[in-house]
Write a protein that binds this DNA or RNA. Structure first.
Lengths: 415, 415
DNA sequence: TCATGTTTGTTAGTAAAGCTTACGAACAAA
DNA sequence: TTTGTTCGTAAGCTTTACTAACAAACATGA
């Protein structure tokens, strides 16, 4: 415990309730003569805003500016944020005192005026624990630095563990990684399959035999660190969002199952029942299809889940002269089915970007092409001309890095 | 002009740019020991927050509290908002000075302590002009009070007018309504078909022959009042949102065309190309279908648009013994097609509520039933158990009232 | 070489916003 | 009549970010 104490992030003494209670996440700016649209329309105000909330926001803004733009002077930050140099100096002093920001010495390049002192987020000050529970056979973990770089990896064989035993495995995995950290830990981020509510309770994850497992509370209690838990696909899209900077984004994660993560207007979509993105069991098309484990016929998963796809591909006789085209046909059909399901979503949300995550050898070819073609044929070209469908650049680590983004965002307001 | 001056809402001297420029619409509350979820996760801060922004927000909060809960004392508002009585008194003094709030005299009921002075939004102080351009043959308008009640109506026959002539018709319609207002006007709200950007430029509305028509600017210039313009379905969903209080909502508006409006996490969805909700030309199913004006086969509109539906129904021989069942078949098929398109959207967004707007005699029967049945059969029952599909309660006036909500929200931060 | 201009970061003082504390007014209940 | 409660307001405090001013440290050009 004392060892963990030393590794704690700032302000994380206990996983206490939010200091501002039900305080607010938005400011409306009403009463202007002309319409105001920063992103959406003016919004219903949902709680009071005190000066200290503004301070919190501005501090996060400074951190965000440094985080994305890198080392620069206080004056640079002032210009970029619109706050004054005085205010920035004050905020930066706080951040330095907390160990989040460091001075790097004078700027080298020669220009008139007093030379600037460069400051930056101390990217070596904290590490983050990322956990990916979405694979079928094993749980993955990583120690991740503030830049999203993976410092070290760990994994445990799931060996079919479910229920309480699976929870113990997660705890064991995290404990091992905490022992290997070389700095204080900012927090723990977990991407879990299934439906996860905003408090980090896994409402339902059939593969793991979990029903109403309070994973966030369990881990927070065990390690006395900030913990964030969310659905694996919803976590994955955070990683992609950090990379793409686009504010509307759909990520389809194809693995043992098929799930999606959505960001709209820069905000993750959770869903009324916390089940946003669960498109694996939406029926595709009007021509039936193979029977799914859920009882329906023609669910997206029966066309697209990796086990189903590989089984179908393995059934091809590799000696056959048509083997290559048979393979393409199977992948083409899978891609078409994905396009059919995505078309209404892309149309309704007028999405600019759809990202695929999963085995590139399956997705990044005939399947990808068929999905694009189907989307183009089934939506209004005029509105969705700019739509891009691409493979993720994050490969296997997308959930781990997304988990880090979740912690960064939750603890520092940075991503 | 002097007459209009008298009718102006507060702070609407000129349609000037927003006083706070690119100021901010959200506050993050980072750095808490435990995850903070008001609605979504912590967010990237996107701009500075000054004390006056907090003041604006809190003022809107007071207004919102009074608007929804009705007449009450300053102390009541203080308890409800969490601000102190002192601060509430100060804010209310401002609001009274601006004519937005009035004192109603002492509370009647007998209880201990000094009797409270009731205050309320002065619901008779301002009126709103709502305009609905979504009908094919005519433009509708209404003078609407702050409660959303329709004070008077107006309409002009479109007579096929397009382009500049159609703009002139809108101006004429608004001018007539302004002449009939009996109070200052808070603003003008317009629901237009087509793609409308956040600045109120109608990027494209084929029916009206509009391309890049700066309707907001034109009207603001003409009348020197705050003007808000948005897509008709996106406007309609605002009316429904005001009524339902749910934070995730999809409204499907079926008329001459088919469009949708979306609210997710309490925020209207605009879309990357400002074309969110344009589902009319998404292809339904995998079995082809009638040819659409857009060139594709089996678009949602060919199954569901009112002209198509009525044409198909009119083709039934009313004398035939099967007339009733033939009618049901047609409506059932239309509903099924709607369900097929909605299923992926409902699944991906985990929507709690879908609302239908359009001719009740067509929608509120076999069609509605078929849509519900199809949605249930094609999505995961477990996740979408609570899904409700219902007819709007707003009938014909949904766009007009939504336009009023848009103005209320934009000008007062209230809805 | 030296005066001039520029840029940085800090100090001092000010304005705005909401808080705490305190108080008089007005009432119900004992 | 006394006591306790509630309301609205006043006075003063704290926090926050702002403006104004300045010293330090550099480049540039006469």
């Amino acid at each position: 415990m004392t060892e963990q104490d030393a590794k704690r992030g700032p302000d994380s003494a206990e996983p206490a309730p939010a200091p501002y209670g039900a305080a607010i996440d938005l400011l409306t700016v009403p009463f202007a003569g002309a319409p105001i649209f920063t992103r959406a329309r003016a919004l219903r105000p949902t709680g009071k805003v005190l000066p200290e909330h503004a301070r919190s926001h501005n501090r996060a803004l400074v951190l965000q500016t440094l985080y994305t733009a890198g080392a620069q002077s206080r004056a640079d930050v002032a210009r970029e944020t619109g706050l004054t140099r005085v205010t920035i100096s004050d905020l930066v002093a706080d951040l330095i005192a907390e160990g989040l920001v460091i001075e790097l010495g004078q700027r080298e390049d020669a220009r008139p005026g007093k030379p600037a002192i460069l400051i930056d987020v101390d990217r070596a000050a904290f590490q983050i624990i990322g956990v990916d529970l979405s694979e079928h056979q094993r749980f993955l973990g990583a120690v991740i630095d503030l830049d999203g770089g993976i410092v070290s990896r760990a994994e445990v064989d799931r060996a079919g563990a479910t229920g309480e035993r699976a929870v113990d495995l997660v705890i064991e995995l995290v404990r091992g990684m905490l022992a290997s950290t070389t700095t204080p830990v900012l927090g723990i981020g977990v991407g879990s399959p299934g439906v996860v509510d905003p408090l980090g309770v896994v409402r339902s994850a059939p593969n793991l035999g979990w029903t109403d497992v309070a994973l966030q509370a369990r881990l927070a209690n065990e390690f006395s660190l900030p913990v964030h838990v969310a659905n694996d696909a919803n976590v994955a899209v955070l990683a992609e969002h950090g990379a793409s900077q686009l504010d509307d984004l759909l990520l389809v994660k194809i693995g043992h199952g098929v799930g999606a993560g959505l960001i709209i207007g820069g905000r993750p979509v959770i869903g009324g029942g916390f089940a946003a993105g669960e498109i694996g069991h939406v029926v595709v098309g009007t021509d039936g299809g193979p029977r799914c484990a859920c009882g329906k016929h023609g669910c997206l998963e029966v066309w697209l889940a990796v086990p189903r796809l590989t089984a179908r591909l393995d059934a091809i006789d590799p000696e056959s002269p048509d083997a290559a085209s048979a393979r393409d046909d199977i992948l083409h059909e899978a891609g078409r089915r994905l396009g059919i399901v995505l078309a209404p979503v892309v149309g309704a949300l007028n999405l600019a970007e759809v990202v695929l995550s999963g085995p590139a050898e399956l997705l990044d070819g005939a399947l990808h092409e068929a999905t694009v073609e189907t989307l183009r044929n089934r939506t209004m070209a005029e509105h969705n001309r700019d739509l891009r469908l691409r493979m993720t650049a994050q490969a296997q680590d997308i959930v781990l890095r997304g988990a880090a983004v979740m912690v960064l965002s939750g603890q520092l307001g940075v991503a």
